Amino acid sequence: MLNEVADGVWVRQSEWVWSNSIVVRADAGLVLVDPGITGAELDRLADDVDRLGIPVVAGFSTHPHFDHLLWHPRFGDVPRYATAACAAVATEARERAQAMAVETAPDVPRDLVALVTPLPADGGPLPGELIEHDAHAVGHAAILLADRGVLIVGDMLSDVLIPLLDPRRDGQEEAYPAALDRLEEAARQADVLVPGHGAVARGPEVAARFATDRAYLEAVRRGEEPADERWGKRR
């Protein structure tokens, strides 16, 4: 079920890697951020959205990994946005994303995977401020809803997953801390942090997420085994 974590921001968590589907109320209607993960869960998310009685006007994918590129016919034939870099990667690698999606969730609507386009320069229907960075995946973006004190961060700052650097790109050791710097600056205007996987952080927990990830990255930089028990450590 949807849980309202702030005014006009709801989260529904999947059983698959604790993935969070996020629903944001915008001026014109609802924007669905990273909905997932199985076809059945997407259908139940659609039930929850129907109960809100507000139309879906758009979707948004925080980055081009398959579990963040999903959709369901019941959400409607509306624009699905991403950063320009994310949209380019998602389009180029659409067949691979489709294959990974159906391997993980055979009931997911395959034909709707990775159909994203670049977000307009004016932000379109997406409320708040977009924060694009180079950590974890090409074209990764966070959304700051400063008026509601919420920061949506995609696959960053999880309490269940370690920081996962993109192994296909050079410079991630520098890009990841730089992204944390930008997100931490944005978090000064938020007391709720919504990751792509895991529990929502509130109040002092927000700062603790940054400290935990920085400690992990620093240990890796020193060539040490991080003292971190989050899932995915050996991935």
Rank of each mutant, 00 (worst) to 15 (best):
L115D: 07
E132N: 03
S61E: 12
H133A: 01
A88P: 06
T83I: 11
R74L: 12
D134N: 14
A146C: 12
A114E: 05
G139R: 05
D67I: 05
P125D: 06
E92C: 01
G139H: 01
P73I: 02
H68C: 13
H136L: 15
D134R: 14
E92A: 12
A141E: 03
T83D: 06
T83P: 10
A121G: 11
A97I: 09
R74N: 05
M100I: 03
Q98N: 10
P64C: 12
V89S: 13
A141P: 13
A90D: 15
P120H: 13
D147C: 12
L69S: 02
P64Y: 02
L145P: 03
M100G: 15
D147R: 01
H72N: 09
D67A: 06
T104M: 10
L144F: 08
P118R: 07
P64R: 02
I143P: 05
A101I: 09
A135S: 03
G124F: 11
P125E: 02
A97T: 06
T104Y: 08
A88C: 01
P125C: 05
L69P: 01
P79V: 13
A135Y: 14
Y81S: 03
V102E: 00
V57W: 12
A105L: 00
L70D: 08
V138R: 14
V78F: 14
T104E: 00
I143T: 12
D107M: 15
V113W: 02
L144P: 04
P79N: 11
C86A: 08
D111A: 06
A99N: 10
G76T: 03
A142W: 03
V78Y: 14
D67K: 13
A114Q: 02
R96K: 08
T117I: 02
Y81H: 12
R94H: 06
A58R: 03
D67T: 03
P120E: 15
V138S: 13
A141R: 13
V89H: 13
E132S: 11
A82L: 00
R148W: 05
A82I: 01
P127W: 02
P73N: 12
R148I: 10
L144E: 10
T83K: 03
I131D: 07
E129Y: 05
A87H: 10
L70Y: 08
G124C: 00
H136N: 14
P127S: 01
